[in-house]
Amino acid sequence: MEQWIETLQQPWPWYVAGPLIGLTVPLLLWLGNKSFGISSSLRHICAACVPAGISFFQYNWRKEKWNLFFIAGILAGGFIAAQLLDNGAAVSVHPALAGELAGYGITRYDSLIPAELFSWQQLFTWRGILLMAGGGLLVGFGSRYAGGCTSGHAIMGLATLQWPSLVATCCFMAGGFIMANFILPFILSL
Protein backbone atom coordinates (compact mmCIF):
# COMPACT_ATOMS: atom_id res chain seq x y z
CA MET A 1 0.00 0.00 0.00
CA GLU A 2 2.71 2.43 1.00
CA GLN A 3 4.60 1.58 -2.16
CA TRP A 4 1.50 2.40 -4.17
CA ILE A 5 1.14 5.78 -2.58
CA GLU A 6 4.82 6.49 -3.12
CA THR A 7 4.42 5.69 -6.80
CA LEU A 8 1.31 7.87 -7.08
CA GLN A 9 3.19 10.70 -5.42
CA GLN A 10 5.74 10.82 -8.23
CA PRO A 11 4.82 13.07 -11.17
CA TRP A 12 2.75 10.91 -13.54
CA PRO A 13 4.34 10.20 -16.93
CA TRP A 14 2.62 11.48 -20.06
CA TYR A 15 1.53 8.02 -21.19
CA VAL A 16 -0.48 7.64 -17.97
CA ALA A 17 -1.81 11.18 -17.61
CA GLY A 18 -2.62 11.74 -21.31
CA PRO A 19 -4.93 8.72 -21.73
CA LEU A 20 -6.64 9.54 -18.41
CA ILE A 21 -7.34 13.07 -19.65
CA GLY A 22 -8.60 11.61 -22.92
CA LEU A 23 -11.01 9.34 -21.02
CA THR A 24 -12.65 12.42 -19.53
CA VAL A 25 -14.30 13.03 -22.91
CA PRO A 26 -16.24 9.71 -23.13
CA LEU A 27 -16.84 9.89 -19.35
CA LEU A 28 -18.70 13.22 -19.62
CA LEU A 29 -20.65 11.98 -22.63
CA TRP A 30 -21.66 8.89 -20.69
CA LEU A 31 -22.53 10.81 -17.51
CA GLY A 32 -24.96 13.13 -19.26
CA ASN A 33 -24.10 13.74 -22.92
CA LYS A 34 -21.88 16.66 -21.95
CA SER A 35 -19.20 18.00 -24.26
CA PHE A 36 -15.83 18.47 -22.56
CA GLY A 37 -14.98 22.17 -22.43
CA ILE A 38 -13.87 24.32 -19.54
CA SER A 39 -13.70 27.92 -20.71
CA SER A 40 -17.51 27.96 -21.14
CA SER A 41 -17.66 28.06 -17.34
CA LEU A 42 -16.21 31.60 -17.48
CA ARG A 43 -19.09 32.62 -19.75
CA HIS A 44 -21.62 31.05 -17.36
CA ILE A 45 -20.07 33.01 -14.49
CA CYS A 46 -20.56 36.23 -16.51
CA ALA A 47 -24.14 35.26 -17.36
CA ALA A 48 -24.91 34.46 -13.73
CA CYS A 49 -23.18 37.43 -12.09
CA VAL A 50 -22.84 40.37 -14.49
CA PRO A 51 -25.00 39.84 -17.60
CA ALA A 52 -25.37 43.66 -17.89
CA GLY A 53 -27.92 43.36 -20.68
CA ILE A 54 -25.31 41.97 -23.11
CA SER A 55 -26.98 39.56 -25.54
CA PHE A 56 -24.03 37.13 -25.37
CA PHE A 57 -24.88 36.56 -21.72
CA GLN A 58 -28.68 36.32 -22.10
CA TYR A 59 -29.31 32.59 -21.87
CA ASN A 60 -30.33 30.13 -19.24
CA TRP A 61 -26.96 29.46 -17.62
CA ARG A 62 -28.67 27.23 -15.04
CA LYS A 63 -29.05 24.60 -17.77
CA GLU A 64 -25.26 24.54 -17.99
CA LYS A 65 -24.54 24.44 -14.30
CA TRP A 66 -22.91 21.00 -14.60
CA ASN A 67 -19.94 22.92 -15.98
CA LEU A 68 -19.66 24.95 -12.77
CA PHE A 69 -19.80 21.78 -10.68
CA PHE A 70 -17.06 20.35 -12.87
CA ILE A 71 -14.72 23.30 -12.25
CA ALA A 72 -15.52 23.22 -8.52
CA GLY A 73 -14.40 19.59 -8.69
CA ILE A 74 -11.17 20.59 -10.44
CA LEU A 75 -10.43 22.97 -7.61
CA ALA A 76 -11.10 20.22 -5.05
CA GLY A 77 -8.92 17.82 -7.05
CA GLY A 78 -6.04 20.28 -6.99
CA PHE A 79 -6.40 20.52 -3.23
CA ILE A 80 -6.53 16.76 -2.70
CA ALA A 81 -3.51 16.15 -4.95
CA ALA A 82 -1.47 18.85 -3.24
CA GLN A 83 -2.34 17.54 0.24
CA LEU A 84 -2.14 13.79 -0.30
CA LEU A 85 -0.35 13.03 -3.55
CA ASP A 86 2.68 15.28 -3.47
CA ASN A 87 6.00 14.02 -2.13
CA GLY A 88 7.39 17.52 -1.74
CA ALA A 89 10.28 16.91 -4.13
CA ALA A 90 11.57 19.90 -6.10
CA VAL A 91 10.12 20.36 -9.58
CA SER A 92 12.59 19.12 -12.16
CA VAL A 93 13.16 21.65 -14.92
CA HIS A 94 15.16 21.47 -18.15
CA PRO A 95 18.66 22.89 -17.46
CA ALA A 96 18.40 25.39 -20.32
CA LEU A 97 15.15 26.78 -18.89
CA ALA A 98 16.57 26.85 -15.36
CA GLY A 99 19.57 28.79 -16.65
CA GLU A 100 17.37 31.28 -18.47
CA LEU A 101 15.08 31.77 -15.45
CA ALA A 102 18.05 32.25 -13.10
CA GLY A 103 18.90 35.30 -15.22
CA TYR A 104 15.54 36.77 -14.17
CA GLY A 105 16.03 35.90 -10.52
CA ILE A 106 13.74 32.86 -10.57
CA THR A 107 15.57 30.16 -8.69
CA ARG A 108 13.00 28.39 -6.49
CA TYR A 109 11.58 25.07 -7.66
CA ASP A 110 9.61 24.06 -4.60
CA SER A 111 6.21 24.56 -6.25
CA LEU A 112 4.66 23.87 -9.65
CA ILE A 113 3.54 27.51 -9.58
CA PRO A 114 6.65 29.69 -9.11
CA ALA A 115 6.03 31.95 -6.11
CA GLU A 116 8.62 34.37 -7.47
CA LEU A 117 6.11 35.22 -10.22
CA PHE A 118 2.69 34.30 -8.83
CA SER A 119 2.12 35.58 -5.31
CA TRP A 120 0.24 38.43 -3.64
CA GLN A 121 3.44 40.47 -3.35
CA GLN A 122 4.16 39.99 -7.05
CA LEU A 123 0.77 41.53 -7.87
CA PHE A 124 2.36 44.86 -7.02
CA THR A 125 5.21 44.45 -9.51
CA TRP A 126 5.05 45.10 -13.25
CA ARG A 127 5.87 41.55 -14.21
CA GLY A 128 3.41 40.10 -11.72
CA ILE A 129 0.53 42.27 -12.86
CA LEU A 130 1.32 41.66 -16.53
CA LEU A 131 1.46 37.89 -16.08
CA MET A 132 -1.56 37.49 -13.80
CA ALA A 133 -3.91 40.30 -14.86
CA GLY A 134 -2.77 40.63 -18.48
CA GLY A 135 -2.40 36.89 -18.94
CA GLY A 136 -5.79 36.25 -17.33
CA LEU A 137 -7.52 38.78 -19.58
CA LEU A 138 -5.97 37.16 -22.66
CA VAL A 139 -6.95 33.66 -21.55
CA GLY A 140 -10.58 34.73 -21.00
CA PHE A 141 -10.94 36.99 -24.03
CA GLY A 142 -9.02 34.71 -26.39
CA SER A 143 -10.75 31.48 -25.44
CA ARG A 144 -14.22 32.95 -25.89
CA TYR A 145 -13.24 34.68 -29.16
CA ALA A 146 -11.87 31.33 -30.39
CA GLY A 147 -15.00 29.54 -29.15
CA GLY A 148 -13.12 27.27 -26.77
CA CYS A 149 -9.83 26.57 -25.05
CA THR A 150 -7.43 23.65 -24.90
CA SER A 151 -10.14 21.32 -23.59
CA GLY A 152 -12.93 22.27 -26.00
CA HIS A 153 -10.80 22.67 -29.13
CA ALA A 154 -7.47 20.87 -28.70
CA ILE A 155 -8.98 17.77 -27.05
CA MET A 156 -12.75 17.58 -27.64
CA GLY A 157 -12.64 19.29 -31.05
CA LEU A 158 -9.70 17.33 -32.43
CA ALA A 159 -11.09 14.07 -31.05
CA THR A 160 -14.34 14.64 -32.98
CA LEU A 161 -12.40 15.65 -36.14
CA GLN A 162 -13.53 19.27 -36.24
CA TRP A 163 -11.21 21.16 -38.56
CA PRO A 164 -12.01 24.56 -37.02
CA SER A 165 -10.60 23.12 -33.79
CA LEU A 166 -7.39 22.24 -35.61
CA VAL A 167 -7.12 25.85 -36.76
CA ALA A 168 -7.70 27.03 -33.19
CA THR A 169 -5.18 24.56 -31.74
CA CYS A 170 -2.49 25.64 -34.21
CA CYS A 171 -3.13 29.28 -33.28
CA PHE A 172 -2.99 28.46 -29.54
CA MET A 173 0.44 26.91 -30.12
CA ALA A 174 1.63 29.74 -32.35
CA GLY A 175 0.54 32.32 -29.79
CA GLY A 176 2.27 30.38 -27.02
CA PHE A 177 5.52 30.17 -29.01
CA ILE A 178 5.50 33.89 -29.69
CA MET A 179 4.75 34.78 -26.07
CA ALA A 180 7.21 32.35 -24.47
CA ASN A 181 10.13 33.07 -26.79
CA PHE A 182 9.76 36.72 -27.79
CA ILE A 183 7.54 38.61 -25.33
CA LEU A 184 7.97 36.79 -22.02
CA PRO A 185 11.74 37.45 -21.81
CA PHE A 186 10.94 41.15 -21.84
CA ILE A 187 8.19 40.84 -19.19
CA LEU A 188 10.38 38.68 -16.93
CA SER A 189 13.20 41.21 -17.09
CA LEU A 190 10.96 43.99 -15.71
Binding site: V139, C171, G176
Partner: peptide, 10 residues
Amino acid sequence: GGLLFGFGWA
Protein backbone atom coordinates in the same frame (compact mmCIF):
# COMPACT_ATOMS: atom_id res chain seq x y z
CA GLY B 1 -8.81 34.54 -30.50
CA GLY B 2 -6.59 31.48 -30.73
CA LEU B 3 -3.46 33.61 -30.95
CA LEU B 4 -4.57 35.79 -28.04
CA PHE B 5 -5.39 32.73 -25.98
CA GLY B 6 -1.94 31.33 -26.79
CA PHE B 7 -0.32 34.52 -25.47
CA GLY B 8 -2.26 34.18 -22.23
CA TRP B 9 -1.55 30.45 -21.95
CA ALA B 10 2.21 30.97 -22.08
